[in-house]
Computed example of a mutant assay.
Amino acid sequence: MEIGQSVVFTIPILGGIPVTTTVVVTWIIMIILTIASLIVTRGWKLVPTGVQNFVETIVDGLNSFTKDALGEYWSSFAPYLGTVALYLILANTIDLFGLTPPTKDLSATSALAIMSIIVVIIASVKARGIKGYAKSFFEPMPINFPMKVLDMFTRPLSLAARLFGNITAAFIIMDLISKVAPIVVPAIFSIYFDLFDGALQMVVFVFLTMLYIEEAVE
């Protein structure tokens, strides 16, 4: 059982840049999403049918949910939330295909969390302006300033740690089950730990990010 990320190869520049399994699997996910988007959106018609109808239903559902939460600002953030959702659903469940989930690496989940908090900051500046955003650190009382600054660090930390912890725990449990139980048993538990839990962690991450954006634009 391997918890850490191994180096797949090293780029021979700047003294050698190690490329880990996290980076390689992330590249694979990017390629899958790019090819899938090109195939799915090819030959779309004005009146949707088949796959187009299915995809548009999902997109409309996400847009509607985001619009209800973020109001007039929804269109600026729905694409980001949808992209993160697609990445996470693949990253969290790719263990089913024998690849190491990149979200089992704290550096990957930290990068996602930092990206989300940057988006939250952009949302706040867009809604309040730079002066309004700076003023929000002192509301409702100036004494809240230290807590507001601390909150900027605890939010990405909680997002990263929650996603990393749950995916790593599921990976360890599945590895232990596969070593001590018959073949059929791991397959049954995989439905929960690889599929359900992976999808659940995606929903939690995206929902919390949306909640932080909603708070920022209020």
Rank of each mutant, 00 (worst) to 15 (best):
L106N: 00
A113W: 05
F54N: 13
I188T: 08
P101Q: 13
T83R: 05
I29C: 03
V23P: 13
I188V: 05
L157Y: 10
E72Q: 09
V25T: 08
A127S: 01
S116P: 01
A127Q: 09
M202S: 07
L86M: 15
E56L: 13
I118V: 14
L90S: 06
P102Q: 00
V120H: 01
F205T: 04
F196D: 10
A113V: 10
G16K: 06
V203F: 15
T109L: 00
S136W: 08
A91N: 03
F138S: 15
M141P: 11
P102C: 00
I11N: 05
A111K: 12
S124L: 05
A161N: 03
A134M: 15
Y73W: 13
V8I: 00
I58P: 03
T103K: 07
N63S: 07
L86A: 11
K104Y: 07
L99Q: 08
V120N: 04
I3T: 05
Y133A: 13
D175L: 13
P18D: 01
F207N: 02
D151F: 14
T57F: 04
I177A: 01
I29P: 10
F54P: 11
D68G: 08
N53Y: 13
N53V: 13
G43C: 00
E139N: 06
E139H: 06
S124M: 01
E2A: 10
P156Q: 12
A161I: 03
K148N: 09
L86H: 02
G50W: 00
T22H: 12
I31A: 11
I89H: 12
I13S: 09
E218T: 15
G16Q: 09
D197G: 05
V149C: 03
N92S: 12
F77E: 09
P12C: 11
V185F: 14
T154L: 00
N92C: 03
I58T: 13
A160V: 02
Q5H: 13
Y212G: 06
S124C: 01
